[in-house]
Design a protein around this nucleic acid. Sequence first.
DNA 1: CAGTGGTCTAGACCACACG
DNA 2: GTGTGGTCTAGACCACTGA
Lengths: 237, 237
Amino acid sequence: MSNFPFQRLQADLSGLIDRTPAGQRLPSEPELAKQLGVSRATLRDAMRTFETQGLVRRRQGSGTFVVGKVQALDSGLEVLESLETMAKRLGLVISVSHLSVEPLAADETLAEKLGLEVGAGLLCIRRVIRADGRPVAYLVDTLPENVLRVDDVATDFHGSVLDFLLERGDILKTSRANVSALGATAEVAKALEIQRGDVLLHFYSQLFDENAKVVDYSLSYFIPGYFHFHVVRRVGG
Amino acid sequence: MSNFPFQRLQADLSGLIDRTPAGQRLPSEPELAKQLGVSRATLRDAMRTFETQGLVRRRQGSGTFVVGKVQALDSGLEVLESLETMAKRLGLVISVSHLSVEPLAADETLAEKLGLEVGAGLLCIRRVIRADGRPVAYLVDTLPENVLRVDDVATDFHGSVLDFLLERGDILKTSRANVSALGATAEVAKALEIQRGDVLLHFYSQLFDENAKVVDYSLSYFIPGYFHFHVVRRVGG
DNA sequence: CAGTGGTCTAGACCACACG
DNA sequence: GTGTGGTCTAGACCACTGA
């Protein structure tokens, strides 16, 4: 038994994952913990790091599986494009699940972000984006009801609010995005089929139309290992 | 005892933190766990979320303290500026600690990132950036030795590689930054005085000179609650 | 139904800060 | 030394999957 179980464990697990063919199941947690001489809690702690890298996938009731090398979704931040567009550009196939469309009234936060009054009618669209069947992103868009109605979404909506608005002919100018990181809440963890507290990359952004009105307030949660976001920065002076 | 200890606990802790004056110590972990009717493990799990938001600070051997509302360091990603410049612009005072300057030879990864051959001489600069005495970022810059030497750093180095190069008169063009999120490794956790596995925002970037040569490969780790990074995105087509 | 991962508990031992 | 947070263990119970 080492003095630094966690670091040894990460190395051991890394080796095990490398040696295991893609798609195959790893031994169960109690079994692995026993084999590697650590407690299940420590094992799970280490396993989380591999899940956020997209190397394994854990499914309650069925097991932990090694994930084959998947191509990450790669995009520059200067240009706003939907995940669908991004995937198409890279020749990948993604799908949408858990689509939920729900009218609601603006609370204080949403009212401020959207430039409306508290109580204004809104439409909230949530969905999970999957690549290779694996959930990789959870998206929540909230729009004023005069921009998007429930009926609109019933037809011609394929998962991207941005693409829907553009195809409809809306004139959109820019998006102001904020970049952060957080641990998954219970809600997001469930949607992405990960553990509560797992590391996520988080964007929250406002989409502006030609009149500088906010037409969409958007929250995005990404499993880090499946995305490469980059930006070219000018040296300032 | 609720069926969802964690969610109750977060709410309870949030209330406790709000009611506690800034700078004051919270009850010890065993004490709090007992008061709130949860195990210490669960309590610590919840407390992590408040630490990454910059609401509390935990110090081994001394306790958990409520942090007064600190102004986040706010910056646009379009322009590359040092944290020092950023802080000055916002009227904040930051400091540098744990400065380490170490020559090393390029391994495969560094050689590729810097456009050099394996074994090339490099200089690696690590340091912790603090705001209000609190570690908020951990920065690792690696440069070719023909760009920066140990002697150079001995004088006139105040914590920012970018500022140092600019003041020296180097012509720098752009930086290509990648944005991600990860859990703190043991090394980074120690430097930032947080727990291993705590959520961090992570940039890794290459800085280019006028000849498109890479002069600096940089890794940055940010405690999310202390930073607001944003970017204006053009709607693509 | 048996077996899996998800959550939580109780308690141990350690490293560190401070008097 | 005493008390703090940092780490790890062993085991319980739950929710879910799939035969």
